[in-house]
Design a protein around this nucleic acid. Structure first.
Lengths: 210, 210, 210, 210
DNA sequence: AATGAATGAGGGTTCATTCAT
DNA sequence: CATGAATGAACCCTCATTCAT
C-alpha cells in the first residue's frame, strides 16, 4: 500500500505519478522497470517517490491491484447474473468484456500480460499475497454448472477444459494488444464467435452438419 | 552468430560453453541470466567469451537457434510424411513428439518457455530476425490439407484454428515443465487424447453422442 | 540549545518529545538514530522538529546535558559531604550511586554508554563544548584529599589512579546494562566491594594476609 | 575473504587499496566508512572494488583479520613462554607489547578500538564468526596459574580481576592513541609499571610499606 | 507555531562490456 | 587465441534538512 503521503497529494499529481508508472510497467516488466526513469519522467525527486511508496514493489503492487479492480469492473456485470445465462453465452460475454478491457486499457492489458507471464513466482506471491487467483476457478464452476444443466458434454475433463478456455481468453487479449487498430467492437465479435464455435463444436467435419 | 573463433575451438570446449549457457538460460530468463556466471561455471576467461560471441544476445540467439533445430529433429519425421496421415492423427503425433521433446530436453523446453513468454518484443525480433517463425504456418498448411481431404469443417477460420492448436501445444509443454515427474509417455497420451477430443468435437453436449 | 520555540511548548509536549528522543538514542547510537522515527513516534510534524531544534546534534546535545544533570543529582549528595568520609567509603558510595543511577535510569545509562564509547571525537567535542568534563577531575581531588589524610599511598600516580577508578566505575555501569535482571541493590554491593578490595589491596598474595 | 582477483593484483596496488581502506576505517567506524571514498582515494573504479571484495563487510573482515594477526605477532612471543615467567612480569610484558602495537600501528589500534566498542553485535558476529574471542579468557588462565603458584591472592574474584586487567590494557592502548607524541618506549614503561604497582598492591596506604 | 511534502546527495551494489597484456 | 582486471553507468534505497503554505 502506498503511504498516506501519497493519498494526501493533489489528485493531479497522484494521477501524474501513477500514469508515468503505468507507462513504465507497460513498457518494461517488473525487474527492468526503473524507478529512476519513473521519477525523471514525473519530474519529482527521487526521495519524494519514497515518501509515497514503500519501495518499487509497493508501487507495482498498487498498480496491479488497480488493474485487477478495473478488470473486475468489466467482468462483474456478467458474473453477477451468471445463472441467468446459457454457458456459452456466458463465456462469450466474458470474452467480450475481456476484449473490451484490453482495447480500452491497452497499458493495463500489457502489464497484466507481463505479470501473468512472469516466472518470478516469489514476486508473484509477494504481490498477490497467498490468494494467487486462479482464473481457472471461475471457469471450473461455470463448467460444472453447464454440465448440470446439460449444456456441456459430461465426459470432458473439467480441469483441462477450464485451462483451454482460460488460454483462449488470454489469446484474445494478446491479439488485441498486438492489433491496436481496433477501435470499436465490430471486429471483436466475429473472432470471439468463431472461437466459441470451435469450442462448442470442434473442428471435425460432420456429415450431419452439412 | 558466434565469431569464427568460437568454431575454431575444440568441440569439447565448445560443448562445455554451450552446455553451461543452456544451464544458465534454463535457470534465469534472458535479462537475469548472467555472463559472469556462465564464464565462471565454464572456467573460461571473461575476455574469451567476448572473443567467441559478439555479446550476450549473440550467445542467446545461438542457443535459441540450436533449440529450434533440435525441436525440428523431433517434429520432422512426422511432418515429412504429413500426407500419409489423417489430420487429427497428425496433430496427435506432433503433440506427442512435442511432449517427448519437453521430457527429453527439459532445459530446452524451459528456455523456449521463457522465451515464448518474454514480452520484450524488441529482443524477440533481434533474436529471431525477421523470420519470427510462425509455428502457426505449419498448422495452417495442415489445416488446409485437412479441409481438402474432408477431415475438417471447411467453415472454420483457418488462422484462428492454427492459433488455437499452437496454443494447446504450448499448454502441453508447460504442463510437463511443471510436472517433471513424468518419466515415460504413459501419462502424456491421455492428456493429449482428451485435448484432441475437445478440439475435434467441442464440448457441447450432443444428444447423438449419448 | 533548543530554540526558544521549544521552551514555549507545553511541558507535556516537551516531555513527550524528549521522552521519545531518549527512547531513540537509547536504542540506536547517534549516527543510527533517526529523526524521522522520533518525529513519527512523537506525532509531531517533521517541520516542527526543526522549529524546536537546530538539528539532530542540537537535540542530542540537549539530551546528553539532561543526562549529565540527572547523574549529578545522584552523585551530589555524596560529593557534598566528601570530607566527612574515608576515601574508600566515598568511592564506594559513588559507585553505589552510579549503579543506582544505571538501574533506575537504564535508558540514560545506555545513552551515556553509547556516547562514552563513541569514537567520533569531533562529535564529542561539539556535543560537550570545550569542557569535556573529566569525571577524572573529581577523583583527582578526592585522591589528593585521601593522600593528605593518610588513607592513600602517597607514592601512587594520581592521574593514573583517577583514570583507573573512572574506568572501573564505567565497568560497573556496563555490567548492569548487560545484566538488566537486577532489580534491587543486593547484587551490586558484592561486586563493588570486591572491586574496592582489589583497588585497596591489589591482587598480590601477601603472607601477612594469611 | 577477498576474491582471488584481489590477490592477483600487483602487491603495490593491493597495498594501496588496503592502505586506503585502513585509513578510512581508522577515521570512520564501520557504518560510516564509505566505499565511495575508499574507491576515490584509491583511484580505482567502483566496479573494480567489487571485483576484489564481496562487499563492504568482506573488506572490513579482511582488515580486522589482518589486525588480529598483527596483534598476535606482538603478543605471541610473550604468551608462548608464559609458564617461564612470574604472573606480574607476564602481564607487564603483555601490556608492553600491547602498547608497542598501539604505538607502531596507530591506525590498527584505532580500528580495533572502534570495533571493540561497536555495539552492533550482529556485525561483530558476522565479522568474527562464532568465536568472539574473549581476551578475558587468556587472563583468566594466567590468573589461575598465578594463584596456583602462590603469586596471587587466592581470595580475589578471578573473573572480575580478568576484566580489570583487560580494561587496563585497553586503557593503555587508548592512552597512546590519544597521545601520539610517544615515539619510543621510554614513556610507556613508567606508566605500565605504575599500573602494575597498583594492581599488585592496591592504593591503600600501608604502614608496613613505609 | 504547525505542517508535511520536497529535496538531493549519498549510500552500497550489479553487470555487460572493453582493453591492455 | 587467452586472459582477467578495469570500467562506469545504472540500479534501488535512505535521510537529515528545507520550504511553501
Amino acid at each position: 500500500m502506498p503511504k498516506q503521503t501519497f493519498f494526501n497529494l493533489s489528485e493531479e499529481k497522484r494521477e501524474k505519478i501513477l500514469n508515468t508508472a503505468i507507462d513504465e510497467f507497460a513498457k518494461y516488466y517488473y525487474h527492468k522497470a526503473s524507478i529512476t526513469r519513473i521519477v525523471n519522467n514525473t519530474g519529482i525527486a527521487k526521495g519524494s517517490f519514497y515518501q509515497y511508496f514503500e519501495d518499487k514493489k509497493d508501487l507495482f503492487k498498487y498498480v496491479i491491484e488497480r488493474i485487477g479492480r478495473r478488470k473486475i469492473e468489466y467482468l462483474y456485470p456478467v458474473i453477477k447474473d451468471f445463472d441467468k445465462y446459457d454457458f456459452f453465452d456466458l463465456v462469450r460475454m466474458l470474452y467480450v468484456q475481456g476484449a473490451k478491457f484490453a482495447v480500452e486499457n491497452p497499458r493495463f492489458q500489457k502489464i497484466g500480460d507481463y505479470f501473468v507471464k512472469d516466472t518470478d513466482t516469489k514476486l508473484k506471491e509477494e504481490i498477490l499475497g497467498e490468494n494467487i487467483p486462479k482464473s481457472n476457478e471461475i471457469f471450473i464452476q461455470l463448467i460444472k454448472k453447464g454440465i448440470e444443466k446439460g449444456d456441456i458434454n459430461p465426459n470432458i475433463d473439467i480441469n483441462l477444459t477450464a485451462t483451454i478456455i482460460t488460454s483462449l481468453s488470454i489469446e484474445i487479449g494478446e491479439y488485441f494488444v498486438k492489433e491496436m487498430k481496433v477501435k470499436d467492437n465490430t471486429e471483436i465479435m466475429p473472432l470471439i464467435d468463431k472461437m466459441l464455435y470451435i469450442l462448442k463444436n470442434g473442428i471435425k467435419n460432420r456429415r450431419e452438419d452439412v
